[in-house]
Amino acid sequence: MPHNLLIIEDDARLAHMVAEYLGQNGFTVRHAPDGLTGLALLSSTPADAPVDLIVLDLMLPDIDGLEVCRRIRTLPSPVAQTSLVMLTAKGDPMDRIIGLELGADDYLPKPFEPRELLARIRAVLRRKGDTPAERESQILSFGTLSIDRDARIVSVGGKPCELTSYQFDILVTLAERAGRVLTREHIMEAVRGRELDAFDRSIDVHMGRIRAAIEADPKDPRRILTVRGVGYVFARQQD
């Protein structure tokens, strides 16, 4: 069954080109020319044909992409967990950081090659776990923290934690290697399949979001510890 994508982009020519290219590669694509139309389409999508991923432009004529992203993440589940790739202005890292903080799974600076967008989309969907048979059924447990890799659910004390698909995979990468110090580059390469750019600190943004979800006190973390000058380590100790 083809994946359903929603492109929220005010540049009609670019949207048509991207939709045509993605359609040729097996995706069903809908287009919204502005943020409010995109939110309306997303909210009215039938449950038996959900949107699998949103391609969201940062600069829109009515409300900007950051606000659209924020509103999407406040919608009822499972719509709020829809994967999202944000299109950002080239050379503006602050927009990328804010987008990641709001819950975007990945970003792609403009201008871009459609082939790279396709690769990013496939990578995000693959991380989301659309083929459960490819994933182990083991549940990782650390005291009150439970990580179900098949269901892609994280809970603390039985209460589910809100994480994007990318943040879930970062957590799994760390938890599977509990007690081992991982560099930022190692984490990014393991999750995204490429090395971290020299000045890319988006992994730190995601780590902050993960801590906010699973730590009793994110400012004094006990599960995910920072190793200054190196990276991060998932602590072995139980609650």
Score class of each variant (00 low, 15 high):
residue 3 H to S: 13
residue 3 H to R: 14
residue 8 I to F: 08
residue 9 E to A: 02
residue 13 R to D: 14
residue 15 A to L: 09
residue 21 Y to Q: 09
residue 23 G to S: 11
residue 23 G to V: 08
residue 25 N to L: 04
residue 26 G to M: 11
residue 26 G to N: 09
residue 28 T to H: 13
residue 29 V to M: 09
residue 29 V to N: 10
residue 29 V to I: 10
residue 30 R to K: 12
residue 32 A to C: 02
residue 32 A to W: 02
residue 34 D to T: 01
residue 36 L to K: 12
residue 36 L to V: 12
residue 36 L to D: 13
residue 45 T to W: 04
residue 47 A to V: 12
residue 47 A to T: 11
residue 53 L to G: 05
residue 54 I to E: 06
residue 54 I to D: 07
residue 55 V to C: 08
residue 56 L to P: 03
residue 59 M to Y: 03
residue 60 L to F: 04
residue 60 L to E: 03
residue 61 P to F: 09
residue 65 G to R: 03
residue 68 V to Y: 08
residue 73 R to V: 03
residue 74 T to F: 10
residue 75 L to T: 13
residue 79 V to D: 05
residue 79 V to L: 14
residue 79 V to F: 08
residue 84 L to T: 11
residue 86 M to G: 05
residue 87 L to N: 05
residue 88 T to N: 04
residue 92 D to K: 10
residue 94 M to Q: 13
residue 101 E to A: 11
residue 102 L to Y: 15
residue 105 D to G: 10
residue 107 Y to N: 03
residue 110 K to G: 01
residue 113 E to Y: 10
residue 117 L to D: 03
residue 117 L to A: 07
residue 122 R to K: 15
residue 123 A to Q: 15
residue 129 G to F: 06
residue 129 G to Q: 06
residue 132 P to W: 03
residue 134 E to Y: 09
residue 136 E to Q: 13
residue 137 S to G: 09
residue 139 I to H: 04
residue 140 L to Q: 06
residue 141 S to V: 15
residue 142 F to K: 13
residue 146 S to A: 11
residue 147 I to P: 04
residue 147 I to A: 01
residue 148 D to S: 14
residue 150 D to F: 06
residue 151 A to L: 14
residue 153 I to E: 12
residue 157 G to I: 05
residue 159 K to L: 13
residue 159 K to Y: 09
residue 161 C to S: 13
residue 167 Q to T: 00
residue 169 D to G: 07
residue 170 I to Q: 04
residue 172 V to T: 14
residue 173 T to A: 15
residue 177 R to C: 01
residue 177 R to V: 01
residue 181 V to P: 02
residue 183 T to F: 02
residue 183 T to H: 02
residue 184 R to I: 00
residue 185 E to F: 00
residue 186 H to Y: 03
residue 187 I to V: 14
residue 191 V to S: 04
residue 196 L to C: 14
residue 197 D to I: 00
residue 198 A to V: 13
residue 198 A to R: 14
residue 199 F to C: 00
residue 203 I to M: 12
residue 203 I to W: 04
residue 204 D to K: 09
residue 205 V to M: 10
residue 207 M to Y: 08
residue 208 G to A: 03
residue 209 R to Q: 14
residue 210 I to G: 09
residue 213 A to R: 07
residue 215 E to N: 05
residue 216 A to Y: 03
residue 217 D to L: 06
residue 219 K to P: 00
residue 220 D to P: 00
residue 220 D to R: 14
residue 221 P to I: 10
residue 223 R to V: 14
residue 223 R to Q: 10
residue 223 R to L: 14
residue 225 L to E: 11
residue 234 F to N: 04
residue 237 Q to E: 15
residue 239 D to K: 04
